[in-house]
Amino acid sequence: MFRFLIRRAIGALVILLIISAITFVLFYVAPRDPARVACGKVCTPETLALVKRNLGISDPLPVQYWHWLQAVFVGRDYSSFGHCPAPCLGYSFHNREPVLGTILDRLPTTLSLSVGSAVVFVVFGVGTGMLAAVKQGKALDKVASSASLIFSSMQIYIVGVIAMYYLADQWHILSRPKDVPFAESPSAWFSGLLLPWLVLALIFTANYTRMTRSQLVESLNEDYVRTARAKGLSRRTVFFRFAWRGAMGPIVTIFGLDIGLLLGGAIITEKTFGLHGIGALSVKAVYDNDLPLILGVVLIAAAAIVVFNIIVDAVYALIDPRVRLA
């Protein structure tokens, strides 16, 4: 297990390097010049060159990338900002703020949003899926299956707006989405995020219901489940200890990928509810031609996915002893 983690961590590092390099290249392929924007209306070639040097984009591309890597691993001294200790993601072109600080500032919102909705969709999605699988072919199964089909084809920006209008503004059941730090007031944090959680979870819940149901229907038909029944074990024991164990693997895999994606920023959800997480930040970075910030958010999003992939593989080996970590 230890060797597996070491090996995968090195692999993850390589992937992140490649991703950052690609982002770098793509940024310069795009026909826009951040220096030209920063330079203002009256821009002489001299000022443009100065701005470029100040932004650190006057050097050739490989040198720039090398500087960026250096900053990440050993820190970097800036003429205008002084020393930036590792891991340094540089300073925003747009507002001259340190990128790492900005990201860390936004991270709690994204964490709250994704973890909170993950709790909701796992509990309800897997729970409903289990019920549907147990009551296979009965009314409950049919209702759950058709409801999940309807919900999974909905879009957040429609459901979210409708939910805000009715649940918050008209009926006052839930409060309008608000981004209050947990440390400030746990209750305000909870009520401010409840609506986004529910809306974001709705679509996921539907998917997890369908996935759980189909995995369980399959594993309930396995021979070893029949053997467990033939041993005299109760239906409950057989269901949880045998059938659910067999159904879990794919669900854990998809969950790992989903949570990795969500931690990289739920762009549409954040925009719909006016939350300022990583998702909203990445949109802003792209609009502003803000290379250091773009690199920062891309790196965070990629790291989340890569890390959760490793976790999924490790968990899979724990669930299924036939899986060898190699």
Binding site: D223, Y224, K231, F242, R322
Partner: peptide, 24 residues
Amino acid sequence: LERLRGNKMAMIFQDALASLSPYH
């Protein structure tokens, strides 16, 4: 029946690999 199964009457199945739980 649960009390009888595995206790007073037991069964052996054809495909032992599929019939034994891979997880235990």
